[in-house]
Design a protein around this nucleic acid. Structure first.
Length: 819
DNA sequence: CAATTGGGTTTTTTT
DNA sequence: AACCCAATTG
């Protein structure tokens, strides 16, 4: 490798060399210090590294497998770079190669490269792939993570400068809502008047835009709900509890860098190369953060796809991507358009749909692959029939074609759509997993344990304290609690200290006194233990002191109690595998990781069909993809269609685009004529997105069905004037002769003829629950319905379980299936 | 005064 | 099913 130092780059050399602007010495051994000394002393210099393609073999090997656009994206170092990466164009490949290239060929130490992703999962995958490229087992120095986790790290190191306690707790969304409820109570505002959800959205949106309560007061007119006041009070509650929420992580870091130049420079110098993935989903605060870090060295590389921006409701601003050049003049743009994932047919469908959008940079994906299979359209009478057909097809795919269930996915717009599918998956005995349903630590018992652990690190964590003050019940009822609350407010101290004081002054009596004493002493003991001890040891001590295994759980012998015990053990196992980096108390680190990592329920890794929302599907890919619920009002959701914002539907369309582009081999689109929403039955019309697809991508059987729904074809009715004219038309659904078998006739025939003995799929149209029906409850086992009551739409059933217990359920919410 | 029981409400998408 | 609030029981 040849390294040249220059103080300005002659344009004539630009094509032949890669240029890195540097104000720091390279720390890596590949570049001798003597050759870079000039760069530091003289402030800024250009370092040229000869183009990799014709240099040493290691580089060639590294970037050889990249296509020209990818290679350019991975190796361009001459200032700000914007990579527009279409779906399936090898984006992750480019980022990982870029990091490996920076490290191995330019000699940048890994800890100077910052790579930000949106999910922990993506970060983990990226870390693994980079390590693989570099040929090392693991590299702790690699600064890869989510915005939130990087901010947490920065704020812990800069706690003083940021005005935070070193051991601050991080509130997840649930804790945040709890805190808001507490504030509303304190301020005597009913939850009817100010819905906690809405307050939460308000506060989070304000924080994304770096607005303080005062700013809000100035910016917004007085509304009937005093949002700004609630926000202000909420911040006080958080400060008192030495806690910060998710959005604070971002806002405080940005404010720190904005107001404290020294701190900013410390980190800007540390992260000499900044990379941001999924840039189209960044919000204002995240944009500012990237800018504050990169504004000096301008070594920022962002990767995004405007067509996959689907998080505007969470504050993402697509304009961050569209206007990136304004923030970083002289930005070089590389477009990745060669798709390696999907068949030509799928790509054609995707491109045609997304072309309806106006907010685009514009790109045309192409593939060198074959046409592939045509798309299938599935029309059903209602959601149960829809689910059954899909289950049938899944059976066919896995049984007849030997498809690995892991390679099949079923997508939907919202979680509520999954219920019918889930039921049928069980009926057909198909293995499935729901991605992103219940988070593991959303369970009550895990939240309790986390609260104990939080207190062990930060005894002033009022929110945790309040949660477990009387869990398991230790005689501290509402009266005693309000006593503590008042004392805490009077003295301006935490609940923990207030309790201490009340005890000293003997103002707590009877059972409350004994209970509080035991609790306080236990917390003190946990605190001293937590300073050094292994997290698991702290947990064991907690379980012992609180007798949680017995008292914290309603009935350890019941089925629920049993699964709770299992969860506790699993949590303990999870803790045992945690490896702290050694900064501060290990338990504190564990809790931070816990708060930021939305770890899902454990997965045994057995092959399963995946059920997930489209939002959850971003970044993933499957051979076979079913997208259900393609109905007006469902997808696009009525909220978007009714919205005044023209771009609301564009975002829905991007969501559809994401769904389509996840599929590698075959895509199925499904529509149900009637859909049972949680509260009402609804006749539907097809989604406008179906009409935006070109007929040529569908198979002939599908086309026949579609033509029943869309009498005039695809927007070509001259009377109604062009594209999408028939969206608003009353459509006539003609059920097939035998609605339960067509177009699934072949599949059900197949199932009947199958040699393998397996339970027959259900015969009736809708699963009906009546007195005497044998049912299977997901958690509680099987039993018989003994009674049905309740008003229409809210039927309740009493189930007598086989083990003698019986319980009442609201039918439409209970996770039960006919046995 | 604490603890349990009963009734009413509830769902878009999530780091 | 999960949650919150009011009413009842110990």
């Amino acid at each position: 490798m040849i390294v040249i130092l220059l103080f300005s780059v002659p344009p004539c050399l630009r094509g032949d060399f890669i240029w890195a602007q540097s104000s720091m010495p390279f720390g890596a051994p590949k570049v001798p210090l003597s050759s870079t000394q000039g760069a530091t002393t003289l402030g800024r210099a250009w370092v040229a590294v000869r183009q990799p393609a014709d240099s040493d073999p290691a580089v060639r090997e590294l970037v050889d497998k990249l296509n020209p656009a990818q290679r350019e994206a991975a190796t361009y170092l001459d200032g700000p770079l914007m990579i527009i990466a279409g779906a399936g164009t090898g984006k992750t490949r480019v980022i990982t190669h870029r990091i490996a290239f920076l490290s191995r060929e330019v000699g940048i130490p890994l800890n100077q490269i910052l790579a930000v992703t949106f999910t922990n999962k993506a970060a983990k995958e990226m870390r693994e792939r980079v390590c693989h490229l570099l040929g090392v087992p693991d590299s702790p120095g690699l600064a890869i993570g989510t915005f939130h986790s990087r901010c947490a790290l920065i704020l812990r190191r800069e706690a003083d400068a940021a005005g935070l306690d070193q051991n601050f707790a991080i509130l997840d969304e649930n804790d945040q809502r709890q805190a808001i409820k507490r504030v509303l109570k304190e301020m005597n505002i009913s939850e009817k008047r100010a819905r906690p959800q809405q307050v939460q959205t308000f506060i989070n949106q304000a924080k994304m835009r770096l607005l303080t309560p005062q700013d809000c007061r100035a910016e917004f007119d007085e509304e009937d709900v005093p949002y700004a006041d609630i926000y202000e009070q909420y911040q006080k509650v958080l400060t008192q509890a030495k806690s910060i929420d998710f959005e604070d992580l971002m806002m405080r870091t940005v404010v720190l860098f904005r107001d404290n130049e020294q701190a900013r420079q410390r980190w800007a110098n540390r992260y000499h190369y900044v990379m941001v993935d999924e840039y189209q989903d960044t919000n204002h605060a995240q944009f500012l953060l990237s800018k504050l870090l990169a504004q000096d060295h301008r070594q920022i590389c962002i990767v995004g796809d405007e067509d996959q921006s689907i998080y505007s409701w969470r504050g993402a601003e697509i304009s961050n991507l569209l206007d990136f050049e304004k923030a970083f003049p002289g930005t070089h743009i590389v477009k990745l358009e060669h798709n390696y994932r999907s068949t030509a047919n799928i790509l054609k469908a995707a491109s045609t749909v997304i072309a309806h959008n106006t907010q685009r940079i514009g790109k045309e994906l192409f593939t060198t692959d074959a046409e592939g299979e045509l798309l299938s359209f599935i029309a059903s009478r209602d959601q149960d029939e829809e689910a059954r057909r899909i289950a049938q097809e899944c059976t066919r795919l896995t049984m007849a074609e030997g498809v690995n269930p892991d390679q099949i996915a079923i997508f939907y717009r919202g979680h509520w759509l999954s219920r019918a599918v889930e039921d049928q998956m069980r009926q057909f005995r198909l293995p499935y997993r729901m991605v992103g349903g219940l988070r593991f630590y959303d369970r009550a018992e895990i939240k309790d344990l986390l609260s104990f652990l939080r207190l062990a690190v930060n005894p002033d964590d009022n929110l945790a304290f309040e949660r477990v003050l009387n869990t398991p019940t230790r005689g501290i009822g509402p009266k005693a609690q309000s006593q503590i609350e008042i004392e805490a407010a009077r003295l301006g101290v935490s609940w923990m200290r207030a309790t201490h004081r009340l005890l000293q002054q003997e103002e707590l009596k009877g059972t409350a006194r004994r209970g509080a004493e035991a609790f306080i002493n236990a917390i003190d003991a946990w605190c001293s233990l937590a300073e050094h001890a292994d997290p698991v040891d702290v947990l064991d001590r907690i379980l012992l002191d609180t007798n949680y295994r017995n008292d914290g759980i309603a009935d350890p012998k019941s089925i629920e109690g049993e699964s709770k015990l299992e969860n506790i053990e699993e949590f303990r196992g999870l803790m045992a595998t945690f490896r702290p980096t050694g900064e501060g108390p290990p338990l504190a680190e564990f809790l931070t990781a816990m708060a930021l990592d939305a770890t899902e329920e454990k997965d045994d890794g057995r092959p399963r069909i995946n059920l997930l929302t489209i939002h959850n599907a971003k970044g993933l890919e499957y051979d076979y993809v079913f997208t259900i619920g393609l109905e007006k009002g469902v997808f696009p959701t009525s909220r978007a269609e009714d919205s005044m914002e023209a771009y609301a539907v564009e975002e829905e369309r991007r969501l559809f685009y994401v769904a389509i582009t996840r599929a590698r081999k075959k895509l199925y689109l499904s529509y149900a004529y009637q859909r049972n929403r949680p509260d009402f039955w609804q006749s539907t019309q097809p989604s406008r997105f179906l009409l935006e697809l070109p007929p040529s991508v569908f198979d002939s059987e599908s086309l026949r069905y579609m033509k029943r729904l869309v009498p005039y074809g695809w927007g070509n009715n001259p009377e109604r004037g062009g594209a999408n004219a028939n969206v608003d038309r009353e459509l006539v659904y003609t059920p097939a002769e035998d609605a339960t078998e067509a177009p699934g006739r072949a599949y059900s025939q197949y199932i009947r003829n199958m040699a393998a003995p397996r339970p027959a799929p259900p015969s009736g149209a809708k699963p009906k629950f009546t007195v005497g029906t044998r049912v299977l409850h997901r958690h509680l086992g099987s039993g018989v319905i003994s009674e049905i009551g309740g008003r229409p739409g809210w039927e309740r059933a009493v189930i007598d379980f086989d083990d003698g217990r019986s319980q009442e359920f609201v039918l439409k919410y209970a996770p039960i299936t006919a046995e």
